[in-house]
Computed example of a mutant assay.
Amino acid sequence: MPSYEISRDQIAQFQRDGYLLLKNALPDAQLAAWRRHAEALEQRALSEHRQQHYCNDYCVVEDPVGPRLMRFDNLFGYHPQACTELLGCPAMLAVARQLCGLGCVPLQMDLLYKHQHPHPVINWHQGAQHDRQHPYLNVGVYLDDAPAGDGCLRYVPGTQHGLEPIQTLSEQHGWEVPGVVEQPAQAGDILIQDMMILHGSQPKRSDGTRRTLYIELRPLEAILTSGAQSEQWAQLRKQWMAQVLSVVDAAEVPSVWQHYYGSPEADLEALVTKMMALKEPPLPAVWATHPVDHPDYPVPADLR
């Protein structure tokens, strides 16, 4: 029997609202390890930036206070074992098993850094538009606290079913779109969102850096039928999931999963080499088409 289960009420909430918070779901040892990895990756990116050595796997922005790391992508190429262990922790397996279903594979695993204002604000947007025939999840694993009123995620529940008029909503309402909910989180929490829900986050007011791991999950069949990525790219993700299942307790997943994914065809290092050599872009998010002129959006008036 799996050691972590998402309740029926939680599943119903996710299906209704488009997001779900799992409190204290990341094991303490993994939280501590990923905080160390996040610090090392940040120092690496900033050091290379100072030396004018640039890499497509990370983005350093020139904030008014100096260069700051905004994101570090393709984490499997830098910490493959830690990524595999994270995907295999009981809560992540429950997300895969109960919210994504058989055929679930990880598409990406990236790390986002949010610094104190001034730093780029995450405007209202909706993630990858798709036909909604299969689940498409974005899972946030919090390495630091994201308290209410300090730039935590804001959602508009129920907006995951189709494209919203983001330009009009932003111009008319700024951050106070009707029905908006602010969703705080703490280090160790896991926040799952439907890729298409309307969401964004205001500036971070407190000092320090907030780090959040983001993992995209989608059934293999959905990737193959969408044509957004190649079959080879998709099959490498299936192999990534096979690596995960090869090191977890068999009780954590149904027996049919072991049969579906099979045994890893190569060791983890060889797989990572292939994945890093074959990078294909994800489905893009949808944003407002023009800059928005609003007194409190995207930067609130008291921070301007």
Rank of each mutant, 00 (worst) to 15 (best):
Y297P: 02
E42V: 00
A33F: 06
L278Y: 13
A301L: 01
Y136W: 12
K238C: 00
K279M: 06
A82H: 08
G101D: 08
T84A: 06
D131L: 06
L191P: 04
L41R: 03
P67S: 09
Q172R: 15
F76N: 00
S206Y: 08
L213F: 01
V180F: 07
H259S: 12
A277S: 11
L137C: 00
E265K: 14
I197A: 02
N56S: 14
V60D: 08
G200L: 09
H259G: 03
N123E: 15
A277F: 00
E269W: 14
Q126C: 05
T225D: 11
S230V: 09
G66Y: 01
G262T: 04
L283A: 10
Y214V: 15
C100V: 15
P281F: 06
P147Y: 00
R210H: 11
R35V: 05
P300E: 09
V180M: 14
G174V: 03
L93H: 07
Q258S: 15
F72S: 07
R44A: 06
E182W: 02
V141K: 03
G208C: 00
H125I: 12
L99E: 03
E5Y: 13
A266K: 10
Y261M: 04
I223D: 05
L213D: 00
D302F: 12
P295A: 08
A222K: 06
Q258G: 11
I190P: 02
P118W: 02
N138T: 09
M92H: 01
G140I: 03
A250N: 11
T289E: 15
G77N: 02
A301S: 14
S226C: 04
G127V: 03
D207R: 15
R97G: 02
Y297Q: 10
H199W: 01
E62Y: 05
L198D: 01
S230P: 08
H79W: 07
R50N: 12
Y261G: 01
N74W: 12
A222V: 00
Q10A: 15
H290Q: 14
T168A: 14
Y260T: 13
E280I: 14
Q172N: 14
H119V: 03
V286K: 04
V181N: 01
P281M: 03
Q129L: 10
G158S: 12
L213A: 04
L93I: 11
A234M: 06
G158Q: 12
Q232V: 13
Y261W: 07
A301W: 05
V248D: 09
P157V: 05
G151Y: 03
G227Y: 03
Q229G: 10
Q108A: 14
Y4C: 14
Y19V: 00
D131V: 02
R16Y: 01
L21H: 09
V181G: 11
Y155V: 01
D189Y: 05
L22V: 10
Y54R: 13
H161Y: 07
N138P: 05
V61F: 09
L69N: 00
S263E: 14
V292W: 02
G66R: 13
E171S: 13
Q15N: 15
L198V: 04
R35Q: 08
I122K: 09
L21R: 11
P80K: 07
P165K: 11
F72I: 04
